[in-house]
């Protein structure tokens, strides 16, 4: 459900118009720590005000709008830090907003429907949530510091635990696949009577989460990992 509103984001476009065409961009602003009251500012002005790399902002906004252009090479340490901060913000959004919300809907369903099937669904989600938290902690504590160290630590100490960008990419878990399982179980198989309000809210939450996870992994795979790999190659060639 990679929704695309086909407006290509350019520095000269007004941010408010972009949001009007694709409200999901609000989530992006939040991940960049930009306030929603964007006045009449263009993308360029907004980036200046918040001191955010314009190229990076345009690239990510285009991902949100459905343009998966070629990868994006991080050119400065500032850009790297901004990408990592963006991803960390998305982690907070999963941890403290999206997952608790989904969890509360499922608990609600479980309370209304005593069938063991729903109980198993809740357990499925809880186990999944634990896996997600593990993965987010891993990224926050191991992967992101590694990428940041690539820039800071030019004289890389080789005795240090060898870790590489590709390893990070292998570590990518099946978070998106389990989410698909959950969606399919609810859409096709598990019978729940009534409670349409809660179930609709649950579906919308799942779809929102799916969308954001998709963008999140696109950023990791098309920006962070290729940049890390090319940095490693340069370093090793020295």
């Amino acid at each position: 459900m990679y929704h695309s509103s086909k407006i290509r984001v350019k520095p000269s476009v007004k941010m408010a118009d972009l949001i009007d065409a694709n409200p999901r961009l609000l989530l992006m602003l939040q991940h960049f720590n930009i306030d929603f009251r964007v006045s009449d500012q263009t993308v360029q002005q907004l980036c200046e005000q918040y001191d955010i790399s314009e190229n990076l902002f345009v690239h990510i906004a285009n991902l949100f709008n459905g343009f998966n252009t070629k990868g994006f090479q991080l050119n400065t340490q500032k850009e790297l830090i901004q990408v990592v901060n963006f991803l960390k913000e998305t982690h907070d959004y999963y941890r403290s907003d999206k997952y608790p919300q989904i969890s509360s809907y499922i608990r609600h369903l479980q309370e209304n429907h005593p069938e063991r099937e729903i109980k198993m669904l809740e357990k499925f989600f809880n186990d999944y949530f634990v896996e997600v938290l593990d993965h987010l902690d891993y990224e926050d504590n191991i992967a992101f510091p590694y990428f940041l160290s690539l820039w800071e630590n030019e004289a890389h100490d080789d005795t240090q635990e060898r870790y590489s960008s590709n390893e990070y990419s292998d570590h990518h878990t099946d978070i998106e696949l389990k989410l698909k399982d959950l969606k399919n179980l609810l859409l096709k198989y598990v019978k729940i009577d009534n409670d349409l309000d809660v179930r609709r809210k649950l579906f919308f939450s799942l779809y929102e989460l799916e969308f954001d996870l998709y963008i999140h992994s696109l950023i990791e795979e098309t920006i962070l990992i290729p940049s890390g790999v090319s940095f490693e190659e340069n370093r090793d060639a020295k």
């Binding site: 063991r116 099937e117 198993m120 669904l121 357990k123 499925f124 186990d127 099946d174 696949l177 389990k178 698909k180 399982d181 959950l182 399919n184 179980l185 096709k188 198989y189 598990v190 019978k191």
Partner: peptide, 22 residues
Amino acid sequence: KTGIRSQSGLTIYAISKKIVNI
């Protein structure tokens, strides 16, 4: 066929379809 990949997801599928007894 089912669109379900994980073992725990398949368990719930099998119960919904009454393939295994809950």
